[in-house]
């Protein structure tokens, strides 16, 4: 039998023009806006610096130092997906970097083992965060504020304010090297981002995290444990912060405990500008990467024009506020009235 009046009949027409519809939706999306902004920023920057940006070394640096912002942005995004926050992202990055260096310099472990251990350490810290949130029912903000303070201390506990250097030259070579002019660390960050995208788009666990973040009640009624989702999101966040720590170790050739000090705010800026809601249920891997790139461009501009570094913070802050306002306007006034 067929419905006499089918509320969905208009869909048949829409499917026909599906591609046009998707294109229009894409043009209106945050990703598109960010791509345009990123491209425009890059072109303006490149042309006003007289092509300086295209010289091999500068261009390489632009992307080399993009890896860590992308990774910490993704680390924050992972917990935002379930409606949580992780204030410890920055210090975990610094701590894992210090531990990796310590394992190589002091303990004498080979680089691959140290790298693996440091990433796992990040995951373990994430596990601790998640378990604390779930078991104590204390707000995730406060829990990670506390663990941030603890890890901040531990970070300096590894080697005080001293610097580790002369660790595995192979690792540093790999970190500073590039594959056909594309920095290795940037390739790593992109691969990780792809993996995260696939995880959230295709993997059963990733979808469960998003379902839990998007509608906890529906998730629970579908047999998904919201507690497990929160723990897993924190573990993922810790792992990603650990990878960021390793990138720091490999890229710089020497590390000290101040690594990660200035990463907390950028970790939020990238996903928020990229279109991730604090309420959970949404991730935007491309958006987060693009936002990290735009913030990086502002950094580069600061260096190129030798402007006061403070402008960067001021502009990034203003951009986040602007992004927030624009998103609100886009959602429309109807939300504001209820």
């Amino acid at each position: 039998m067929t419905s006499t009046i089918d509320p969905t009949s208009s869909d048949a027409r829409r499917i026909g023009s599906g591609n046009a519809l998707r294109l229009r939706e894409f043009v209106r999306s945050t990703d598109f806006t960010l791509i345009v902004l990123a491209a425009a920023g890059f072109v303006v920057l490149a042309s006003t610096t007289g092509g300086n940006l295209f010289t091999g070394q500068t261009l390489k640096a632009v992307f080399q130092y993009l890896a860590v912002p992308i990774l910490v942005g993704l680390a924050q995004m992972a917990v935002l997906a379930v409606g949580q926050m992780n204030l410890s992202v920055g210090v975990v990055t610094g701590f894992t970097a210090m531990v990796a260096a310590w394992l190589m310099v002091r303990v004498g472990l080979p680089a691959p083992v140290a790298v693996l251990a440091a990433v796992l350490l990040g995951g373990a810290i994430g596990l601790a965060n998640g378990l604390l949130v779930v078991l104590t029912r204390i707000n995730g903000f406060i829990v990670t504020l506390a663990t941030m303070t603890v890890i901040d201390g531990l970070r300096y506990g590894v080697n005080g304010t001293g610097t580790f250097q002369n660790y595995s030259s192979g690792l540093v070579k790999l970190g500073q090297g590039s594959l056909v002019d594309v920095p290795n660390v940037f390739i790593l960050a992109v691969l990780v981002a792809l993996a995260v995208a696939v995880f959230f788009r295709r993997a059963v666990l990733g979808r469960q995290l998003l379902a839990s973040g998007g509608n906890p009640l529906a998730a629970r009624l579908s047999g998904i444990s919201n507690d497990r989702a929160i723990v897993m999101a924190h573990v993922l966040s810790g792992l990603l912060a650990g990878v960021a720590g390793i990138v720091d170790v490999a890229l710089s050739g020497s590390v000290n405990a101040s690594i990660g000090d200035d990463l907390l705010l950028p970790s939020f800026a990238a996903p928020i500008i990229g279109g991730v809601a604090l309420t959970g249920g949404v991730v935007a891997v491309l958006g987060t990467c693009l936002a990290a790139f735009i913030v990086r461009l502002i950094d580069v501009a600061q260096a190129q024009y030798s402007i006061d570094k403070s402008w960067v913070d001021l502009i990034v802050g203003a951009v986040v506020l602007g992004a927030v306002l624009v998103t609100q306007v886009r959602i429309g006034k109807k939300g504001a009235r209820t």
């Binding site: 295709r202 993997a203 059963v204 666990l205 979808r207 998003l210 379902a211 998007g214 509608n215 529906a218 998730a219 009624l221 579908s222 047999g223 249920g281 949404v282």
Partner: peptide, 22 residues
């Protein structure tokens, strides 16, 4: 779940899995 597709919402309780992936 608002951000999920129609298919995924329908299958939310009985997600067809293949090696950890949907």
């Amino acid at each position: 779940v608002p951000a999920f597709s129609v298919a995924e919402n329908i299958a939310l309780q009985a997600v067809p899995k293949r090696r950890g992936f949907v």
